[in-house]
């Protein structure tokens, strides 16, 4: 991780009608940094990620990628999106294309790279996540965990500078969560810049360089993972972490 700011939110506000979802977010993500965004449901985590990829237009403030403002619907948006990969909760593989075609579609058609070269990269990536044998299968033939790993490969194959992960394990059966998280851990170790929204607390603690705790549309607390999980500074963060622990029932 170096000090270059790669992705930046500045005074970011987002309203849906009368409802304010993000109320002034300032966040710098440095090159090679892994930022995990935590917070109760409805706190605006997903909206923050969606703004970062131009899927939602900010009501106020801006998102900048290497200093260049991302404008939803702007002329450069498709160019900018190629530099930011995003993986969704619902995988959203293209159901009418097989796994390999899912992965190669955008690099070949959008980035105009040679098919052979893209397929080579896809092979490398698929092998890394252990799904090379499934390259000819269709998404419906894969388990949720497998689909999600393919979705990650699909995004990676665009050679993005930043990856956004929006609750990628939330729709998975518990036994499949691990296989997806392991892939993400590996990516983090290789120094990919990542912004992750998740509900997996142990995973967050393991992967994050920095935790952002979001509540009510503002950043309530920002800390290194050890600090955040062992000694949260704000009451709201304490309450939030409390919901993930169970105390043994007293038998009397």
């Amino acid at each position: 991780m170096d000090e270059t700011i790669q992705l930046q939110a500045a005074g970011l506000k987002k309203k849906f009608g009368a409802e304010t979802v993000l109320n002034g977010i300032d966040l710098d993500v440095h090159k090679g940094e892994v930022v995990v965004v935590l917070g109760p449901s409805g706190c605006g985590k997903s909206t923050l990620l969606r703004c970062m990829n131009g899927l939602e237009a900010p009501t106020e403030g801006s998102i900048r990628l290497d200093g260049e403002t991302i404008t939803s619907g702007g002329r450069n948006i498709t160019k900018q999106r190629q530099r930011i990969g995003m993986v969704f909760q619902s995988y959203d593989l293209f159901p009418h294309k097989n796994i390999l075609d899912n992965i190669t579609l955008a690099p070949v058609k959008v980035q105009k790279r040679s098919k052979a070269e893209v397929e080579q990269q896809a092979e490398k990536l698929l092998k890394r996540v252990g799904l090379w044998e499934k390259r000819k299968a269709y998404p419906r033939e894969l388990s949720g965990g497998q689909k999600q790993r393919v979705a990650i490969v699909r995004a990676l194959c665009m050679n993005p500078e930043v990856m956004l992960f929006d609750e990628v394990t939330a729709a998975l059966d518990p036994e499949m969560v691990r296989e997806v998280l392991d892939v993400m851990l590996e990516l983090a170790q290789q120094g990919l810049t990542m912004v992750i929204v998740t509900h997996e607390m142990q995973f967050a603690r393991a992967i994050a360089d920095r935790i952002i705790f979001l509540d009510g549309g503002v950043i309530v607390e920002e800390a290194e993972p050890e600090q955040f999980f062992t000694n949260p500074q704000t009451q709201r963060a304490k309450d939030f972490l409390q919901t993930f622990t169970y105390e043994k029932r007293k038998t009397s």
Binding site: N53, G54, L55, T78, K79, R81, Q82, I84, G85, M86, F88, S90, D92, L93, F94, L105, A106, K109, V110, Q111, A151, R154, A155, M158
Partner: peptide
């Protein structure tokens, strides 16, 4: 979500 994932791939 299909449209969004296509968008996120820069299409």
């Amino acid at each position: 979500s299909q449209i969004e994932s296509a968008q996120s791939l820069g299409m």
